[in-house]
């Protein structure tokens, strides 16, 4: 279990994480969503003990990560964004090393290494230097190193970057299997689809602040029944905004050059009305994209930015 209370991390006048609180329950996956520089990795750094919080408190399995660092770290597994592996040596040696780093030894360490190699599907190439592995295999062994000591809390910081689809699916399975054993997982990602597929609860980060959190259903509810409609064409975005804003149940989300994003209830039925408003403003619509209410629409609505798909 992870408990984050009023966490704040600043570097001089720059506030990377600002008054953030959330809880990750045992056997649940908690997703942190946010664009680059939103403060997700800083938050993870404070939870893992890598960074010292400026204010607030973080508890892992009931232990304060600052005051009871060793006990807190003992139950924590970290899958960092970069591949924290020794590529010159084999997967076996990497697993033995990281297992020993968490206090494992002797036959327990050897047995667990064999189990993790089997679990990650790398047993047949266990003695090869990791540098010979594909990106997906490296990600799997990176994950394996984090679960060697059977942690009750797993922190995964964008673990699927640069991973082929097959390895991504295997990684998702492995995460879900850990959760099935009661592990709490904190998962940061850029990928909306991953968050929707994996996470029981989500928090949306932007500019160091947590701007929304809850279950997937809670967040979808925040979007309401409105669709996101993207219009592009031969028009001035600001003139189009002025023409569309007075219309009932139409909210302009973003307006840039010849593109405009709208939040509109029952958008497909109201398309003629919207086109006419833009035509009256001296423009012409040439491209239309309609999205059903989703996490992405909420993210867009809250931050004004799109995440990667």
């Amino acid at each position: 279990m992870i408990e984050v209370e009023r966490l704040r991390k600043s570097y001089g006048s720059f506030v990377a994480v600002d008054d953030v609180s959330f809880t990750v329950q045992p056997g649940k996956i908690f997703g942190l969503l946010g664009p680059n520089g939103a403060g997700k990795s800083t938050a993870i750094g404070c939870i893992s003990g890598l960074l010292q919080p400026t204010e607030g408190r973080v508890r892992v399995n009931g232990y304060d990560v600052v005051k009871e660092g060793k006990a807190a770290k003992q139950g924590l597994g970290v899958v960092p964004q970069e591949l924290s592996l020794y590529e010159d040596v084999s997967a076996t040696e990497n697993l033995l090393f990281w297992g020993a780093a968490y206090g494992m030894r002797g036959s327990e360490l050897k047995g667990r290494t064999h189990d993790v190699l089997t679990y990650t599907g790398l047993l047949d190439r266990a003695e090869e230097p990791v540098k010979n592995y594909s990106g997906g295999m490296k990600r799997r062994i990176n994950f394996g190193c984090a679960i060697m000591h059977r942690p009750k809390v797993l922190l995964l910081d964008e673990p699927t970057v640069g991973v082929d689809p097959q390895s991504r699916v295997r990684l998702f399975e492995m995460v879900k299997e850990q959760v099935a054993h009661g592990t709490s997982v904190l998962y940061t990602t850029h990928y909306m689809q991953e968050a929707e597929l994996l996470c029981d609860e989500l928090a949306i980060f932007d500019h160091g602040k947590l701007i929304a959190d809850g279950t997937l259903e809670d967040l979808r509810g925040m979007v309401g029944e409105k669709d996101i409609l993207r219009l592009a064409g031969n028009f001035d975005a600001e003139k189009a905004r002025a023409a569309l804003t007075p219309l009932p149940d139409v909210q302009v989300v973003t307006a840039e050059s010849d593109r405009i994003r709208l939040s509109v209830a029952d958008a497909s039925r109201r398309l003629p009305e919207l086109f006419e408003a833009i035509t009256r403003a001296g423009g012409e619509v040439r491209e239309t994209t309609l999205s059903q209410p989703s996490l992405e629409t909420l993210f867009l609505k809250l931050t004004g930015k799109e995440l990667r798909r």
Binding site: L50, G69, K73, L76, E87, Y102
Partner: peptide
């Protein structure tokens, strides 16, 4: 640069041991 040191900071063993 591989991130092994920062991962090590998150482990209960000490950097002196490494």
């Amino acid at each position: 640069t591989t991130g092994a040191l920062s991962r090590m900071v998150s482990a209960p063993n000490t950097m002196a041991a490494l």
